[in-house]
Amino acid sequence: MKDVMTQTIDFTLNGKAVSAEIQGHWTLVDLLQQGFDLYGARQSCGQGLCGCCTVVLNGKPVSGCLFLAALADGATIETIENNEETLDPVQEAFIEAGAFQCGFCTPGFVLMTRQLIAEIPEPSEEEIRLYLTGNLCRCGTYPQIIEAVQKAAARMRAA
């Protein structure tokens, strides 16, 4: 085995310019957890299929467990921890609809929902299902998540 290789990267994390010393094999999830103590992006399936590791990279959601941290040099990264002071309409709608049970998948669903509503302000149920099919909830909260997305979208259109 080779020695551990480290390098320094600079990027913008939730609106702040930061730098981090990383190991070459680190993914974005490793970077956020080990470099910044942010645990909202979590590795679960490890294959980009469940969405628990969702991170918004340069404005687009990606699977943090499949993206090398080294490639984030110069990038802009947003995580679920980007608005801690006040909840946004998506988070509020998730709470009102009861759209989570154990909560492990919730940050991924919230981040994806924000993106969905930005792309499709008035999503049909079919569009919601298609867009969020890559996020899995083992507690089976899907009916409530669909309700939450519709609620949040309606509230954001009205705002």
């Binding site: 909202g40 988070q91 709470i95 940050p107």
Partner: peptide
């Protein structure tokens, strides 16, 4: 009542 830990769950700050 909403789950008491709801806020921590939607902000990703819940303890696991």
């Amino acid at each position: 009542h909403p789950r008491r830990e709801a806020r921590e769950k939607v902000t990703g700050r819940i303890e696991y």
